[in-house]
Computed example of a mutant assay.
Amino acid sequence: MVGWDRETEDLVINDADTGDRQAFERLFNQYQPLVVKYYYLLHFKGILVDYDDWQQESRIVLTETLKRYHGRKFGEFGAYFKTNIRNRGFDLKRQQNALKRRATEFSESIDDESQNNLVDQLRAFGLTGSHQLNLQVYLTRLKALLSPLETFVWQGLINGISIAYLAYVGGVDEDRVTNAINRCHIKATRVFRAMQRE
């Protein structure tokens, strides 16, 4: 991070606070190393926060920091932003851990029966012997490719759970569930085609 002198930083802060988008971007870019550092320090991954989400959250934190910052007599802007970004990161990490627990409990409650339900449903179509074995291999390979959110969604769909309820239980919006469904279809097709070539 290339340092600004105090006068330059104060001017950029003032301009950003009054709604100047270019000044806001300059300020955000100035503190980008701090944003990236906390993303990696907090080990975000999985369902709740990806890198783009963290960037967006950081912009919101910067906006809030600008609103509450009252000048150098109360402290340095960088130190105040650092405290705010760290606190927001801790909040998101707590939410992520709670979501993982809820998703794991939900998945475990349907995990074993999900695969068996699907196999039982397909048996109704007359699948026996080697076809059942192929199906088990297919499902095992597919499961290995799915992310935690995709696994959660896949198992819910097999059990007839609605997109709205999956979004509610998973603590994500319905668009993320729909996108996860689309990724499941793509991965399922990829596994199927690979098995056809064997």
Results as ranks from 00 to 15, higher is better:
residue 96 Q to F: 01
residue 152 F to A: 06
residue 165 Y to I: 08
residue 156 G to W: 12
residue 107 S to K: 04
residue 102 R to Y: 08
residue 157 L to K: 15
residue 109 S to C: 03
residue 145 L to T: 07
residue 112 D to A: 06
residue 149 L to R: 09
residue 168 Y to R: 13
residue 167 A to R: 07
residue 95 Q to K: 15
residue 140 T to W: 04
residue 115 Q to Y: 14
residue 137 V to G: 00
residue 169 V to N: 02
residue 190 R to L: 06
residue 115 Q to P: 01
residue 131 H to Y: 10
residue 108 E to D: 11
residue 109 S to T: 07
residue 187 K to P: 01
residue 125 F to C: 01
residue 143 K to R: 11
residue 181 I to K: 07
residue 87 N to V: 08
residue 108 E to P: 00
residue 152 F to C: 06
residue 155 Q to L: 15
residue 96 Q to L: 04
residue 109 S to R: 09
residue 126 G to C: 07
residue 156 G to A: 05
residue 133 L to P: 00
residue 187 K to D: 05
residue 97 N to W: 03
residue 189 T to W: 09
residue 139 L to D: 02
residue 133 L to Y: 02
residue 128 T to P: 00
residue 153 V to K: 00
residue 144 A to D: 11
residue 87 N to Q: 12
residue 106 F to K: 02
residue 141 R to P: 01
residue 134 N to E: 10
residue 91 D to S: 14
residue 124 A to L: 15
residue 162 S to P: 03
residue 112 D to L: 05
residue 134 N to Y: 08
residue 179 N to Y: 12
residue 118 L to D: 00
residue 127 L to T: 03
residue 186 I to D: 07
residue 182 N to M: 13
residue 138 Y to G: 02
residue 138 Y to H: 08
residue 95 Q to N: 03
residue 148 P to L: 04
residue 159 N to L: 09
residue 84 N to Q: 15
residue 123 R to T: 05
residue 83 T to Y: 13
residue 103 A to E: 00
residue 112 D to F: 06
residue 133 L to W: 01
residue 158 I to K: 05
residue 90 F to H: 13
residue 174 E to G: 13
residue 180 A to F: 09
residue 106 F to T: 03
residue 161 I to F: 01
residue 94 R to V: 15
residue 152 F to I: 06
residue 128 T to D: 02
residue 170 G to K: 04
residue 168 Y to I: 05
residue 183 R to Y: 07
residue 83 T to C: 02
residue 92 L to D: 04
residue 136 Q to F: 08
residue 115 Q to K: 15
residue 85 I to R: 04
residue 139 L to Y: 06
residue 158 I to D: 05
residue 120 D to G: 03
